[in-house]
Nucleic acid binder design. Sequence first.
DNA 1: GCCCAGGTGAAGC
DNA 2: GCTTCACATGGG
Length: 288
Amino acid sequence: MGNFESSMGNTKTFSVQDYDLAATLLSGQAFRWRPIDRRWVGVIGSHWVCLQPDQFSITAATAEPVSDWDWLIHYLQLDVDLKEILLTFPDDVPMRNAMIACRGLRLLRQDPWECLASFILSSTKQIVQIQQIIALLCERLGEPLIPGPAFPAAYTFPSAIRLARATEVELRACKMGFRAPYLLATARAIASRRFDLGRIGQLPVELARAELMTLAGVGRKIADCVLLFAYGFQSAFPVDVWVMKALRQLYFPRRRVTLKRLHRFAATHFGPNAGYAQQYLFHYMRTK
DNA sequence: GCCCAGGTGAAGC
DNA sequence: GCTTCACATGGG
């Protein structure tokens, strides 16, 4: 491992409170972070970065000098006041337990294309397997990046344009199975400009969701993940098998409740940061 | 062998 | 509208 402190311009320490980096990076919102002796190594856009958490800070080291750290502040949402958000959660037993169990859990703000493509690959896969598929995809079709000294090879997430040029066979070779044609069709819609990801963030959330759901392999759940994790629509509330289990078990024990009913409940019960609350329930269910 | 995994789309009522 | 099913692949 190199001595980051000695080289100018490629390390920076950000002071933060209530930021559980491990929980955040492993809570199934992003899939490219790897733990390497108490640090977290990943790629954000075209930046290789290594994050070292401390009690009241996160220290970032990049492979190349950086003058402007806004990309990292934005990705980690370092200027968000978590306490303000937690105050908007409903004051009930399940949320109190989830808040205790998930102290410091945050939502990231990811690149829309990477987030969209990643979640197209997520359907009926365990998080570990999603990580494996994406690692393989980046290795084969991403651009090589210069990693920090003595760190393993690193790659960018392949662009929509790059994936649009790929064949279904190439994609299937990355172990993504029946998701390959979905990813390919969506990449081609974006690469050909039939679909504009830049416009999604400017629409009202219902329209943005409907637009995303016109893409191949994107239904309600994946659309909600992208709305929440990439565009920051705080009301988006992805309901997967875990969240469904959480809602049924914690809020509707001994009653059979439809998915539609759960969505209506979520829209009214969890307040303006419902999506954030959802991530707490998700992580709570998976770790307890 | 079985069942399940941060689901979606198509076909059947 | 709703229910059922196929879809690859790997882990427990």
